[in-house]
């Protein structure tokens, strides 16, 4: 993507008629990596600087955009383009080397991976997740059945989460995190492990959150998921924004840029 480098960063167009929820201002993220593959600890320390093989990887190189209420934003780009880094920066888990992220509230991040508390049952994870999100005990009790039903885990809800498959775990985590409206929710590939049926239902839920004044970021390699849920798409490559706009246009340009797979099965 040499094009973007020649043109400089994409200009940010601010829509003053809508309420901004997340503002990302010229965010740079740099990882220090040993070229052996081991990540350097700490950012200062003269010892580290002298170490041979210490490399700086510029995962994000000046990303800016504004996300609004009632918006679901798809984030696309090839592996290693900086999508997950951007999501972690929005949640505050990765400190920007320069620039800043502003948000109305601290977003919740749904990623692939471990259960919340793996030694506890799904049931108890629902209660704890709900309480951690700030619900009262009564509210958690009221939405418990809904969460279980949405995750379709009625038969397994009393088993420890460490016994769940990655799809089951992702379903439960999504159901907990998506139980709250008016929130910023970031979904980083978390739905890709779910089955077709769950994906349809979760996509419907994402649209619902969006329509209820929520803001959702969806990182996915499934263009059909992005098309069916997102009102806007951001395309990242090598740590910079390549395009930001209407889903169909951005996805078309993105697919155009990539070498065609041998078989066109979609």
């Amino acid at each position: 993507m040499d094009v973007t480098d020649e043109l400089g960063p994409l200009p940010v167009v601010v829509d003053h008629t809508r309420k901004p929820v997340v503002v990302v201002e010229d965010v740079h993220v740099t990882y220090r990596v040993y070229s052996s593959g081991k990540r350097a600890r700490g950012s200062d320390g003269a010892l580290l600087k002298k170490t041979r093989g210490l490399r700086e990887v510029r995962a994000l190189r000046g990303v800016s955009f504004v996300a609004y209420e009632n918006e679901s934003i798809g984030v696309i780009g090839p592996n290693g383009s900086g999508k997950s880094t951007l999501m972690r920066a929005i949640v505050g888990l990765t400190p920007p080397a320069a620039g800043a992220v502003y948000a109305t509230s601290r977003p919740n991040l749904l990623g692939i991976g471990a259960a919340l508390i793996s030694e506890l049952s799904g049931e108890r994870n629902i209660v704890l997740g709900g309480l951690a999100l700030g619900f009262s005990r009564a509210e958690v009790a009221a939405m418990r059945d809904e969460i279980v039903a949405f995750a379709e885990l009625e038969d397994f809800i009393d088993l420890p989460m460490k016994t769940y498959s990655s799809g089951m775990s992702a379903r439960l985590k999504f159901s907990i995190a998506a139980s709250r409206n008016h929130e910023i929710l970031i979904i980083d590939e978390a739905l890709s492990v779910g089955d077709r049926r769950f994906r349809d239902r979760s996509e419907a839920r994402i649209r619902e959150i969006r329509d209820n004044a929520g803001t959702v970021f969806l990182v996915s390699h499934s263009m059909s998921s992005i098309r069916s849920t997102c009102s806007r798409v951001i395309w990242i490559n090598q740590g910079v924004l390549v395009m930001d706009g209407d889903p169909d246009e951005v996805i078309a340009a993105y697919e155009e840029s990539r070498p065609r797979p041998l078989s066109q099965g979609r």
């Binding site: 901004p20 997340v22 503002v23 201002e25 800043a100 948000a103 109305t104 601290r106």
Partner: peptide, 17 residues
């Protein structure tokens, strides 16, 4: 108007602060 000003005007806080 800079993005930081836009954020401040709308009551957004720096994430992680």
């Amino acid at each position: 108007m800079s993005l930081a000003e836009l954020a401040a005007e709308n009551g957004l806080h720096r994430v992680g602060a």
